[in-house]
């Protein structure tokens, strides 16, 4: 399978390493032609304000929204922000592909970044996973059809709808392939 990874900015190579370990082809997406060749898409961590400016500048908004309506997309941290419906303080609206309200940098600055155990529901099994939270956002509200799939203490840190999976933490920074594998095998 060809997994596209949005490579405008951020830790896209980290996602690429995980996808390659799982035995899939990686396409680093910076233009429409490469997006069209992708079977699924991952939007990485990075700076969401930078992502949205470049998406606009490079005229990728409509193609990305169209992709997300028909194919599956995973987003981590800034990727989650980019895919949400309602986020304050962005230069352009997010893509609106998963009905969640998000608060950016909700835990504070880098000094408040942390690594702690999260629990995630992977196809019915709730398992422990390392949660790397870097200037992480929080999901404030989720709409109908959005399922909770992961928790850190009281906070919901992973949600999904039919074809979009998002996390507020960075599974690509942990040496653990299970979340990417879950996305690739279960979202169509």
């Amino acid at each position: 399978m060809k997994i596209g990874i949005l490579a405008l900015q951020g830790d896209f190579y980290k996602h690429g390493e995980v996808v390659q370990k799982l035995g899939h082809d990686v396409l680093y997406v910076k233009d429409l032609a490469t997006l069209k060749k992708s079977d699924k898409l991952i939007i990485p961590g990075g700076e969401s304000t930078t992502f949205l400016r470049l998406i606009e500048k490079l005229k990728l908004r409509d193609p990305l929204v169209e992709f997300g309506r028909t194919k599956s997309v995973m987003g981590t941290c800034a990727g989650l922000i980019t895919l949400a419906t309602q986020v304050d303080g962005l230069p352009f609206p997010p893509l609106g592909l998963i009905d969640i309200n998000v608060e950016r940098n909700a835990y504070g600055r880098q000094i408040n970044s942390f690594i702690d155990e999260v629990r995630v529901n992977l196809s019915g099994d709730v398992v422990s996973f390392e949660g790397v939270f870097i200037r992480a956002p929080k999901i404030q509200k989720r709409g109908q059809g959005v399922r909770e799939l992961g928790w850190h203490k009281e906070a919901v840190v992973m949600v999904a709808n039919e074809n979009i999976l998002v996390t507020t933490f960075h599974p690509e920074l942990s040496d653990d392939l299970r979340l990417h594998e879950f996305f690739i095998n279960n979202f169509n």
Partner: peptide, 10 residues
């Protein structure tokens, strides 16, 4: 290092 990773390509 994680924060540095997030700044890549920028």
């Amino acid at each position: 290092i994680g924060l540095a990773e997030m700044l890549k390509g920028g």
